[in-house]
Design a binder for these strands. Structure first.
Lengths: 339, 339
DNA sequence: TTGAAAGCGCTAACAT
DNA sequence: ATGTTAGCGCTTTCAA
C-alpha cells in the first residue's frame, strides 16, 4: 500500500498516460482536447478518486471561487434566510459562499475578515455598514467587490443592498399612530452593537416626536431572543406602566412571547393593547394571533447581493458603488388594526 | 498610484529592509527573530495593510487551518447550535470552520464535500452516517480526521459523536407508555432522507410493538417545520382519529404548533391528550405549556467533534475510530406527566 | 490537439 | 538571528 498522500495531477497523468497539462485541461473542461483523451483521463481520475488541489490551482491562476459572507449571528432567525438567498443565487455560477460569524463584535469581525481575505476570495458580502477603521481599510484595499447588506442608512464602501431601518421604524410608528394608539412602549434586546435595531428605534421615536409623543416606557434585555424573554419583558413593562396601549418589539420572537403573555392575561388584543414586531418570521405564523410585523426582505437581500458579486465576477462592473434599497412590507397581522 | 495588486511578503520585505524569510517568520511568530526586527516588520506590515496570502502559505507548508463542516440545513434550529459548539471549541486552536450545506440531498452532499476536500482541510465534521458511496470513498481516502455527528446508529468512517436516535425514540415511547397513554399518534415532516428522524420513529414504534401497540395514526408534511404546519397536521389527525390520547412530534416546532391548536380547542393537556416533541429548542420555552421534549445535545456534539479534530491536528491520534454517544435528557415539561 | 518551461507567493530545510 | 535555495501542485504561456 502506497503512503497515504493525496493524489496529484501527476498521478492521474501517469495512470492515464497523458501529460499533466492535458489532464489539467480535461478536468477543468478548458481548451481543446480530443474526445478519446478526455474519456481516458476522466475515467482514470474517477477511478483513482482524484480530488484536485484548489490551493495549488488558485495560486497558479490567482482565481479563487470563494465568496466570503460575514454575518453577526446564526441563532438569529434572520441570517440563515439571507444565506439561502446567497447560496441559491450563487449556485451555478461556480462561486461558493464561505461563512464567517462575528457575534456582533467588531474585533471578531476584524479577525474573521482578515482570515477570509487571506484566502483571496472573489468577493465579500458583509452585514451592516458599521465596521472598524481597520476593517473598512482592509475591504477597501482588497480590490474585490464588497457588498454590505441589510442596511442602507449610512455610507457604503462599495455596493450595498438592504432596507432602511430608520424608514422601517418610521413607517411602523405612522401605522401605529394612525390607529389612534398614544401610549406606546418599546421592547428590545440590549445590543449596543445591533445598529439596525437602533436605527429602527430612532426612526420610530422620531415619528412619535413629530406627533408630539415620546415612547412612554421601554424595556431592554440581553441575550438571545426567545419567547420567555418576551413574556418577562412584557410583564415587567405592563406592571410598571399599566396604561400602555401599544407595544413595539424589536423582533418577532420576543413579540410572540409578549403576545402569548397578554392573551393569557385575558387582555384584548388589539383593542386594549396593540402589538408589533419586526422581521416577518414565517416560522411564527400559527400563533393564536398573527403578530403585526415588517419583513426585512432577507432572502431577496441575499439574492441581490450574490447577484452583484456574480456579475462583477464575470466582468460586469456597472454595479460599482451601487445601492439597492428594498422596501419592507408592513404586515398588519391581527394585532395592529383596531377598526 | 501603483496598480491595485494585493501586497506580497516581498513588498513588506522591501519596505522594512528585512529579508522575505524573516518577514515570514515574524508574521507567523515562528523562529527566533530579534525584538528590533520584529517591531520593524510588524509596523511595516500593519502600515501597508498587508494581508498574507494563505493560498501560497498553505501550498508551501501543506498545512491548512480549515475544518470543513457539512450540515443538511440551516433553517432547522438545530444546526446553528452545533456550529456554535464547533466554533467555540475551535477558537484558540488556530483552526477555522468552513461550512457547507446539503439540503438533505446526497448529490449535493457529494458536490459540497468534493469542493471542500479540494481545499485540503485539516478535518471534516459531517452530519449523519449515511452518505453516498462516492462520498464515503472520498472521506476515507482524504487522509484527514473525519467526525460524523448527530447520530451513532450505524457504521462510522472514522470518529463519530452524537446520540442514538433509535434509543431516543424508545425512551420517549417508554415514558409515554408508563403514563398510560395507549392511542398514540405520530407527526413528522416527510423527509425520506432525514435518517435521524426515521430512526427515532423506528425506535419509537419498536417499543410500542413490544407493548403490543401500534402507532394509531400518523401524519406527514413536507417543507420546513413551522407552527402553522404543526397546527394543520394536528387538526387533520385529530379530526380523522379523535380518540388519540398522545401525539409524538418529530420536532419541537411542529409540536408547539400542535400545542397551541389543542389549547385553543380547549382540550385538556396532558389529561385528554399528551404531547411530546424532539430537540429541546430553548427558543420555545415560554409557550403556554412547556412541551415535553428530548434534547439532542447539539452544542455538546459540536464541541466534542471539534475537540477530536483539534486533538488530532496536534498529533493526538488516540481518537481514531472513536465513538462518543451522548445521552439525551428527557424533559417532561408540562405535557407528558399525567400524575 | 498536445507538451515543456516558468512561476504563482509562500515556507521547509539548510546555510551562515 | 538572519539569509539562501528549492519547491509545494497547479495553470499560464508559448512552442510544436
Amino acid at each position: 500500500m502506497p503512503p497515504k498522500r493525496p493524489l496529484t495531477l501527476r498521478d492521474v497523468s501517469e495512470a492515464s498516460g497523458v501529460s499533466e497539462m492535458t489532464v489539467s485541461r480535461v478536468l477543468r473542461g478548458k481548451g481543446d482536447v480530443s474526445e478519446a483523451t478526455r474519456i481516458k483521463v476522466k475515467a482514470a481520475a474517477k477511478e483513482m478518486g482524484y480530488v484536485p488541489n484548489r490551493i495549488a490551482g488558485a495560486l497558479a491562476s490567482s482565481r479563487v471561487n470563494l465568496v466570503a459572507v460575514i454575518i453577526p449571528s446564526l441563532s438569529n432567525m434572520v441570517f440563515p434566510e439571507v444565506l439561502s438567498g446567497i447560496a441559491d443565487r450563487l449556485s451555478g455560477t461556480g462561486l461558493q459562499p464561505v461563512m464567517g460569524v462575528t457575534d456582533y463584535a467588531p474585533d471578531a469581525e476584524e479577525k474573521v475578515l482578515f482570515e477570509m481575505l487571506s484566502w483571496r476570495p472573489s468577493g465579500v458580502i458583509i452585514a451592516g455598514l458599521e465596521h472598524s477603521d481597520a476593517s473598512r481599510a482592509m475591504l477597501a484595499r482588497a480590490g474585490i467587490p464588497v457588498v454590505e447588506i441589510m442596511d442602507v442608512d449610512g455610507a457604503a464602501i462599495d455596493a450595498c443592498v438592504g432596507i432602511s431601518h430608520r424608514r422601517a421604524g418610521r413607517k411602523m410608528a405612522e401605522a401605529i399612530l394612525e390607529q389612534g394608539y398614544r401610549r406606546i412602549g418599546f421592547l428590545g434586546t440590549k445590543m449596543p452593537l445591533d445598529f439596525r435595531a437602533r436605527k429602527r428605534l430612532e426612526g420610530f421615536s422620531q415619528t412619535l416626536a413629530q406627533a408630539g409623543l415620546n415612547i412612554t416606557d421601554q424595556e431592554f434585555y440581553s441575550g438571545g431572543s426567545s419567547l420567555a424573554k418576551g413574556r418577562e419583558m412584557t410583564q415587567a413593562l405592563m406592571t410598571r406602566t399599566p396604561d400602555i396601549d401599544f407595544l413595539y418589539y424589536s423582533n418577532d420572537m420576543i413579540g410572540a412571547g409578549g403576545l402569548l403573555h397578554l392573551l393569557e392575561q385575558g387582555i384584548d388584543i388589539p383593542g386594549r393593547v396593540g402589538l408589533a414586531g419586526f422581521n416577518g418570521v414565517e416560522l411564527l405564523d400559527g400563533l393564536p394571533r398573527k403578530l403585526a410585523t415588517m419583513d426585512a426582505c432577507r432572502y431577496a437581500v441575499g439574492e441581490k447581493a450574490a447577484e452583484i458579486i456574480a456579475d462583477r465576477h464575470v466582468g460586469k462592473d456597472e454595479s460599482e458603488g451601487l445601492m439597492v434599497e428594498l422596501t419592507p412590507k408592513l404586515d398588519f397581522g391581527d394585532t395592529l388594526l383596531r377598526n
